[in-house]
Nucleic acid binder design. Structure first.
Length: 506
RNA sequence: GCUCGUGUAGUGUAGUUCGGUCCAUCAUGACGGACUCUCGAUCCGUCGACCCGGGUUCAAAUCCCGGCACGAGCACCA
């Protein structure tokens, strides 16, 4: 119509039939999370359930941020639950429980409302397993994994299903007594074998593990798998909404089947997609754990690792990580993002309260030739160029100074000081006023500097820049912006030896 | 292979429920400029997208059908 009769004709037609369409606002980007389905203010219970086989990674931080944000929107609660019911494949790391608790609090800005460890609640899960067997909707399967897979893939009934409740209970007791070896029995949930997704058919709920648990020892011989433990616990904690990765979609379906057996209603469930960061690839906790053991990394806080510990150590603020995830929102799309994006959020958070310092890499020594011009004895340089931080740093001028070798040019401007020309080992002052468009470089009077070393994660290793840092109010742990270099964290200021600087980002 | 999910600029993201000034939002990025005694910050501008093909309709990013691509699950891991 618009083509034939013009836009006005469309307007008129719409005015007659659908006036609202004309008043539509210009598009705007929705900010914040979409509302949770079926959520009641004050009654929302969410959960964040990591495996404590290592500290939290960037990947986990999405779960912390999204769940805690929803909780805050609805004045709800978040249950921090340690899913530590695997003693062998991904065994828990005892220190990780405390780490995760602290990292959760750091990321969310407040502690989790409830903290529970699955391994401490084993009697409950075992009791529910027994009820399942007694109720006839679960059975002990003595097939090997391979045998069962063949049956399952062909929708054939496992012969173990035909056994009586009494036989099942007898096996169950033997399993728990440790009389059946690992791999020789498993408890399954009875489902419809015609389910289109083979993964759901008679799925395994508990298996035998004789390896001692790092936290509770060898008290239990039968351990629940994630889908069983998680399902029971979500119900017990009154979880109303589950927000998790979409790799767990099949878990939702399995757990829903179990809920139906028990007569419970499954929580509302939302998902996010897989995330990769260009610089890191995926975030495998087990992989990192192995690499650390192999000595490839210095520890969980190694600045090359995508752990929260490393990020925080380098100087990323939790606010930036929250802003980042909130900007992404909750989508099921698999994405691959760049650290640059997170860095940009971090810059916005830290720039206005980071003091500036001069750090001269690869220093070239020069003598200051005053050229008979009257020079001040000291220089006053702002701590922050935009006055976000009041006050100035004071430099005592001396007759020796350094610039970066790479900045060597015939004529340069020593930032906040003077135009000089370089002649062999001399820096000859030409003017205190800035004239022309010569390059402005950062520099340092030699006696104002202190030996320092800047470490930058680079590929599999590190890049080290030795240099001189401005020795004014250096505070261990502080993040400063090294002029023309980038943000860095002051790692340590030893009595003797170089100040250690860890590069953050530009 | 089977099951499930997802496709909007380089990267992310809004809009899709309920079709309508949507020549499609915002951020980040790249490029250019202004400002600034940092290569930072700030400001201005430019670039750049509805997976493909049909269909319904006055009108499709949005609804329908069919493809294609990508991802995940198919563990006695979480």
């Amino acid at each position: 119509m618009a083509q034939k009769n013009g836009v006005e004709a469309v307007r008129e037609a719409l005015a007659a039939t659908n006036p609202e369409a004309l008043e539509r606002q210009k598009q705007q980007k929705r900010v914040g999370l979409k509302p949770l389905p079926n959520a009641t203010e004050g009654e929302v219970v969410l959960r964040f359930a990591p495996n404590p086989n290592g500290p939290l990674t960037i990947g986990h931080s999405r779960g912390v941020v999204i769940n805690s944000e929803f909780a805050s929107i609805y004045s709800g609660k978040v249950v921090l639950r340690y899913d530590d019911t695997d003693t062998r494949v991904k065994p828990p790391l005892p220190e990780a429980y405390d780490w995760i608790e602290k990292e959760y609090e750091w990321l969310a800005g407040r502690p989790a409302d409830i903290i529970i460890r699955a391994s401490e609640r084993m009697p409950i899960y075992l009791e529910y397993a027994k009820r399942m067997l007694e109720g006839g909707f679960g059975y002990v399967c003595r097939c090997t994994a391979a045998e069962f897979k063949t049956l399952r893939d062909n929708s054939h009934v496992c012969p173990c299903r035909a056994r009586s409740v009494e036989e099942n209970i007898a096996d169950w007791v033997s399993m728990n007594d440790g009389d059946i070896e690992e791999g020789e029995a498993v408890v399954r949930v009875i489902t419809d074998l015609e389910l289109p997704n083979p993964a759901l058919r008679d799925w395994p709920a508990l298996r035998i593990q004789h390896t001692p648990h790092p936290m509770v020892g060898d008290e239990y011989k039968v351990w629940p798998l994630l889908d069983f433990q998680s399902a029971i616990e979500d119900h017990l904690q009154g979880v109303t909404h589950i927000v998790r990765g979409k790799d767990l979609m099949d878990s939702t379906r399995k757990q829903t089947l179990l809920y139906e057996h028990f007569g419970w209603t499954y929580p509302e469930t939302l998902y996010w997609g897989r995330v990769k960061v260009h610089e890191f690839g995926g975030f495998s906790t087990s992989g990192m754990r192995a690499d650390i053991a192999d000595g490839k990394f210095e520890g969980w806080g190694d600045s090359r690792l995508p752990t929260i510990a490393a990020l925080s150590r380098r100087g990323f603020k939790s606010q930036a990580i929250r802003d980042f995830w909130m900007d992404l929102g909750l989508t099921q799309k698999d994405i691959s993002i760049s650290m640059q994006t997170i860095e940009s959020f971090n810059s916005s958070v830290i720039d206005s309260d980071c003091e500036r310092r001069s750090f001269v890499r690869n220093p070239r020594n020069l003598s200051l030739n005053t050229n008979d011009l009257p020079l001040p004895e000291t220089l006053q340089i702002p701590r922050h160029p935009d006055g976000e931080i009041k006050g100035s740093r004071q430099w005592l001028l001396s007759d020796k100074l350094v610039i970066e070798e790479e900045d060597s040019a015939a004529q340069i401007r020593l930032k906040d000081f003077a135009d000089v020309s370089i002649n062999k080992k001399d820096a000859i002052v030409e003017s205190l006023e800035k004239r022309g468009n010569r390059a402005i470089v950062h520099w340092l009077p030699v006696n104002q500097g202190r030996i320092a070393r800047l470490t930058t994660p680079s590929g599999d290793g590190f890049r080290i820049d030795d240099g001189l840092i401005e020795n004014v109010d250096l505070v261990e742990g502080a993040i400063v912006q090294l002029e023309r270099v980038g943000f860095a964290r002051i790692e340590s200021i030893p009595e003797n030896g170089p100040v250690e600087l860890l590069f953050l980002h530009r």
